[in-house]
């Protein structure tokens, strides 16, 4: 019998399937951000949009397994024409969070989101991705004029009665420091948002980011025998559904070995942390959850 190479990496059990992610827009996005860890773009069809029918099938399995919360990402989720019925179906079962670049948040969509939120006993959260405090960093990564348009979307959400979480990558120097965070929060208060919410995210050195700055160093890997805390890692309590099946987490969908099955039940087993991105999650204590 040959030894699997994966056996030399620490393994994380699935403690419970609490968090279910959907790659609802596949890898299709209206932007082509230069730090995107799965290099999403208008032309990237590695993972296709999920249909309402597909989402329903996994929601049903999620309900049977007692999933606690649902997350929707892409690509850009609002490019999926079925997003609203998908959210409506989800919010009957549990809380939902949508990760977006904020560029599709016109007054009509904001009002519809508020309606969905009000009709559910569960929370609906919007998470808006921003890079840096202003257009200097943000537009360089995401494209000319995007910062102002995104912040206009944030403001429209707030005016519609929803309070989004702003997620900021650590790309801008010092943004995770107390003063960096405060500067960002103050900016939101100036927009009229009296309860500003902020989450700082790590960068993953893969996809487009690999070309923008650098990839992982060979030593940025977890070694066998490293003690990992399954409670802190997303893969210890979550899975990711894409058009190609169920993956271990939202980060590793470009790796075929991270696809664990076609149904949720097929993926209720441990996963070996064989990827450099696993190193980032372990070392920085990253969780994709809010």
């Amino acid at each position: 019998m040959t030894e699997s190479p994966l056996q030399s990496f620490p393994s994380v059990p699935l403690l419970a399937l609490d968090t279910l992610w959907f790659q609802v827009a596949g890898t299709i996005c209206n932007l082509r951000c230069t730090h995107c860890f799965i290099a999403c773009s208008p032309e990237n069809h590695s993972h296709e949009m999920l249909t309402l029918q597909t989402v329903r099938r996994y929601l049903q399995e999620g309900e049977e397994l007692g999933v606690r919360e649902y997350y929707f990402t892409g690509g850009e989720p609002f490019m999926n024409r079925e997003l609203f019925p998908i959210l409506e179906a989800t919010l009957r079962l549990g809380p939902a969070t949508v990760l977006t670049n904020g560029l599709f948040l016109d007054a009509q969509r904001c009002a519809r989101l508020k309606e969905l939120e009000s009709d559910s006993e569960y929370s609906l959260d919007l998470r808006i991705s921003v890079d840096g405090w202003g257009p200097e960093d943000h537009d360089r990564i995401r494209g000319e004029g995007t910062f102002d348009r995104t912040m206009a979307g944030v403001r429209r959400l707030w005016e519609a009665g929803l309070n989004p979480v702003l997620t900021v990558t650590e790309l801008a120097e010092g943004i995770a420091s107390p003063s960096g965070r405060e500067r960002f929060l103050e900016q939101l208060r100036r927009l009229g948002i009296s309860k500003p919410r902020l989450k700082v995210l790590s960068l993953f050195r893969m996809g487009a980011e690999q070309r923008r700055e650098r990839g992982y160093h060979p030593w940025e890997r977890l070694e066998a025998g490293t003690t990992v805390d399954a409670e802190k890692l997303q893969c210890g309590s979550g899975r990711m559904v894409t058009s190609r099946g169920v993956y271990v987490c939202p980060i590793l969908i470009d790796f075929s070995a991270a696809q664990m099955g076609q149904t949720l039940r097929q993926t209720l087993r441990p996963f070996a942390l064989a990827y450099p991105a696993c190193y980032t999650c372990h070392v920085q204590g990253v969780t994709c959850r809010t």
Binding site: E63, L65, G66, V67, R68, G94, P95
Partner: peptide, 23 residues
């Protein structure tokens, strides 16, 4: 019951999840 510092909020503790905990 599974973690002393887990937050069970009303809007993020749906029935299917709670049923699993009780089981």
């Amino acid at each position: 019951p599974r973690r002393i510092n887990e937050f069970l909020w009303q809007s993020t503790s749906p029935a299917p999840f709670l049923s699993r905990l009780l089981d």
